[in-house]
Design a binder for these strands. Structure first.
Lengths: 211, 211, 211, 211
DNA sequence: GATGAATGAGCGTTCATTCAT
DNA sequence: AATGAATGAACGCTCATTCAT
């Protein structure tokens, strides 16, 4: 990679990060090119040097990269050799940590998203779909192998993964909407999600299982 | 209620419905006062007679009323005397039917929402929070009483209800993002959600439970 | 025509006139929507109520209507029963008067024109072409009938008409470029054009013809 | 002239030529510094080394030089010893050839020109005026000497020359506006212009002159 | 009350110009 | 001298809001 490309990548990354910060602070609706430029401490016109297709492309890339990074961060701590249930438990805990560390961006993503305003077939929508699908499939794969190992029962692993993904947003949503007064720490939240996902509300709790 | 108030309520309701149709058709971003007025077959200025605080107030009210209506529709078919698990099963199925019948609006709500662009403390955000909370609490109550009856285990019924709510959006999201080729019918989806919610992926399936 | 249509036509006319004044004052390049709005003493947004297709459409319409008006004004003073040469002479004189009375707009039209920036087949270009052609053909018809009457010789009346049209811009261009110090009055200019067009530089001058 | 000056002149010439090509391809409106730089295969900033006064100066110079070159090319084929009418005829034919060979640039010049957007007194406008005047005067001189020789009658040679210049654009304009279906070749066009200029529509045609 | 024409602040985008390298 | 990344003023256009009718 030439020196120019390195610089360009660096700039693109900086702008995307500024975009995510802006989205986190002002929401998607409140994210203007001016604000992103301010956040990135560059001039408005400079944005268009790196994102000639304009605002939509920029925001889309920011979100796509955000999800991609998250997936990477998630998989970095993953150990495929461990038993599937343990892996799952560990991943869910990691996920909560990740969500915590990008809280504002996630808030916007969950509560103010613009996931599929695109016409079906629009390249940008496709990209977004793909990266989201990758993330879901990462979980779905684990579930599938766990099911094959007989550790769990999952007739439709993709759907189960999707539901897991949604479940993980629940505590965040609760916090964001301030529905509870004293939010539990994220480990407790992670436990709750894992628990419900594994055993359901009727299932036998590992702890109570004993006896 | 005076005759004027009746008329006013009627108009307000019509406008809100038009707003929801517009949101369903064009998404939140594509919803302009012009389009809502067109959809309601009234003049643009008239909207400001009934919503003097402007567009945000209108959209917020439309969403709030939409959720409220949904909650009402849901509770209408509910029979509090039945066993909690049966109630839950029935409610989840109803929920899928309701989502199906307002598919476009739901799509916008889930994928293109603008839930909390409001500053914390903003009255509109509060209202939205409250009506969402009511809906969640309706489920939470059922879960609590089920737990007290020993039918389920739910240390944090509100969180469980929230997770259930999120889980129900999973099949819809899958359909909307076209992640699967041949979407199952809504009854199958409802079963899957109920199943995971009750027994988790490790739990004993009712069918397999037997023996 | 309803009252609304009358009002609308009036507004459209006012805007087009303002556009022509702006073109006359600032040239095509210097004509911005803001300036046209200022000139018409209305708000910028109002322009878009009457010209929803935007600036290009507006400027195009302004030019088209300008040429059309000119053609109308020209034909108003025309008497088709008179001998063709006399008609031609009279029309040329009228033309100079008209150019004089819209001098600024004409200046822009001749020196700063944007006649065919349009892609071939563009509706706007077609309209412009048509109205220009109508104007040229008006002269071409007169020339053709004169030729048939034996009064003149014109193997290609349309080309002759075009050349006449161009010839008439010569004195204006001379004035605009200030190529001469003391511009002759427009009657003298009209005479010169008529003379050259009728007899050429070698032809027998009516005056010198005598002898 | 120092070596540096030679190089500078060479660069200036290349840029001006690139500018004319760009004007020919994209019109005046579509001519940006970026495109000229691309066309000249130099960096954008380099243009400002040679044209520190900016874009207007550059485009103006390009046009001025274009007209100057054309005048030079025209005079190169001229033979001042021949009888004036013959000279004229030959020059008109040359002119059509020149216009043909720079068709795109001429098209822009005639139909999309920006001749006098300048304030009166602006140096650039003066330069343009001067070079145009030179071109016109070249013809005017021929006409004057022809008149003195008694070959033609031209009370105002400059105006006659201007009209001749305009007349020559008529066939080109006809072609550009596609007003005729099957454009005649340029020799026919040149004949038509010469004929009208010499004899007018009433004049005695050389052919019919015979008797 | 109801209307919709009018408004103008604010946005996304372009591009002539500058200047550090 | 040559570069091209960076700049920001200026433009076309949208749309929430107002107000005379």
């Amino acid at each position: 990679m030439t020196k120019e490309e390195v610089l360009k990548n660096y700039r693109v990354g900086e702008i995307l990060e500024a975009a995510r910060r802006t989205i986190g602070r002002f929401g998607f609706e409140g994210t203007t090119i001016d604000r992103v430029a301010d956040e990135a401490r560059i001039a408005k016109g400079t944005i268009y040097l790196y994102f000639p297709k304009g605002k939509d492309e920029l925001l889309n890339s920011a979100v796509v990269e955000g999800i991609r990074d998250m997936t990477l961060e998630l998989t970095r701590g993953d150990d495929a050799t461990r038993p599937p249930i343990e892996r799952l438990a560990s991943l869910i805990r990691s996920m909560f940590k990740i969500m915590k560390s990008h809280e504002d961006f996630f808030k916007a993503l969950i509560l103010d998203s613009r996931f599929v305003s695109y016409e079906p077939g629009d390249r940008r929508g496709e990209e977004l779909r793909r990266v989201y699908l990758e993330w879901v499939d990462f979980f779905a794969c684990i579930l599938r192998s766990a099911a094959e190992a007989g550790a769990i029962r999952a007739p439709d692993p993709q759907l189960a993964a999707l539901m897991l993904a949604e479940m993980m947003t629940a505590p965040l949503r609760r916090r964001l909407l301030a529905l509870n007064d004293t939010p539990p720490d994220i480990d407790t939240d992670a436990e709750a999600v894992l628990n419900l996902f594994l055993y359901g509300v009727r299932g036998v709790h590992p702890g109570s299982q004993s006896k």
